[in-house]
Amino acid sequence: MPKNNSAILLIDSEKCTGCRLCEMACSMLHHGILSPHRARLRVLRFDNGRCNVPVVCQACEDAPCIKTCPMNARRRIGNQAVITDEDRCIGCRACVYVCPFGAPVVNPDDGKTLTCDRCSDEDGPPWCVRACRDCGALKTVTAEEAVARKSRQRAEQARAAYPPKKRPAA
């Protein structure tokens, strides 16, 4: 059984305050130092911090980075996260370029890319999720929950696009 998660990392940017504790926690776990540049997720800040968007690898189902990596270094691991195999990565950044979110981070130490492994070696939730406990912008959900949420979202979007006609008062 893979540890903690076959769970999906869910982002709610509305709740993100831009505190960047997630970046700290991530770099601490993976590199043993507090260094946002080495974190596998990034918080984009817009409008002086009024809008914050955590960006993290979505482990796309048909991930373009896996198909375009010339070294076959991008691979899916047991918990479904897609990671860079550092022994094969040559730092060419194909995965950065092809990612629709620009999620992969280039490690300043060796030029190889880093993406979220959902803390695959840890028990319990990923460290970024723990760090985000107060805001709740980052959460893990099961695959089923994620699907349910997606269809709820779609239904809401459809309702917004096609508002129900007001019935004439009887």
Partner: peptide
């Protein structure tokens, strides 16, 4: 086409 740091956002343009 991009060289250097502009490459980081090229995926958004592809989208």
């Amino acid at each position: 086409q991009a060289i250097g740091r502009f490459g980081d956002v090229i995926g958004l343009f592809i989208g």
